[in-house]
Write a protein that binds this DNA or RNA. Structure first.
Lengths: 148, 148
DNA sequence: AATCTATTGACAATGATTCCCATTAAGTTT
DNA sequence: AAACTTAATGGGAATCATTGTCAATAGATT
């Protein structure tokens, strides 16, 4: 059972790598198996730590690089709005954000109907919900009109 | 007109600082005016740059500290899920996140009805929307039951 | 097996953010 | 208004996450 699953994972990644024209390396496979196995939201550092036992020589750089590759391949997604920098918002009214995936523009969105709507019971059962924030990603008007 | 507005801003911040028992410093006032004036989502660095002319001696450190203070006072909000570290998600199914404000737990949320619902025209008018991501913040069950 | 070249590991470098501490300046008291 | 108290600032060093560089290594191909 377990063996079958592992083989499938390997095959799956092999297939992805082939299609993308990149090599299936030991490191990529181990990282792949690790992130598939764990159902949480690890940082690059945590993944590196978790692989210490299995692949003690793996450099943290490789984890970052592999994760970036995996993101391009659609295997993982980064959480967080942009990358590093923290942004601040002085608008404390209840609102949401539209983020342009091209120029990184952030625009405020108001949607009071959504704010006051009741969440499905499954969601409110997660805990005591304090706030909700919707993030829409897309191409803003300006970028859309600037066709290259 | 402008003068009146400035006085009001000063008074407003003075009131907030008094209530919080902290000093109303020149730096805090300038940063306050800056973030109130601009309707965008600046980084600490950008705020620092913008204040170069007016307060050329202000240290970037002060901007960070002041912003942190302002966040506690409810004057600004940080965008971004956590602070620094980027988290990765290997779950590529359309889903959303619940984030515990206490223990930083991140849990997946599924809400297909929302995913397939039509957005108000005002929102879809922002641009060509590619994805939507809802982030619920609150206290998770475990933290809620661990009453101190 | 030999070859080609992407990928890795090690380490330096960068960028964002925070810590430390002597100096400065709000807010308070005299 | 001058003196005082202590929080807050400025500046530089330190830290943390992430990325760049490059020689050595190991997939993939022949």
């Amino acid at each position: 059972m377990k063996k079958t699953k592992n083989i499938n994972q390997l095959d799956h990644l092999k297939q992805i790598c082939n299609k993308a024209g990149i090599k299936l390396t030991h490191q990529r496979l181990e990282i792949y198996k690790e992130i598939i196995a764990q159902k949480d939201h690890p940082s690059a550092e945590l993944i590196h730590q978790r692989l210490q036992e299995k692949v003690p020589t793996m450099a943290i750089d490789t984890v970052y690089r592999t994760l970036a590759t995996f993101e391009e391949l659609g295997i993982v997604k980064k959480l967080n709005i942009h990358s590093a920098k923290t942004l601040f918002d002085a608008n404390m009214d209840q609102h949401h954000h539209f983020v342009c995936t091209q120029c990184n523009l952030v625009e405020d969105i108001y949607w009071p109907e959504f704010d006051s709507s009741r969440l499905p019971d499954t969601l409110s059962a997660m805990g005591q919900i304090q706030s909700r924030h919707l993030e829409l990603h897309g191409i803003c008007k300006k970028c859309n009109s600037t066709v290259e």
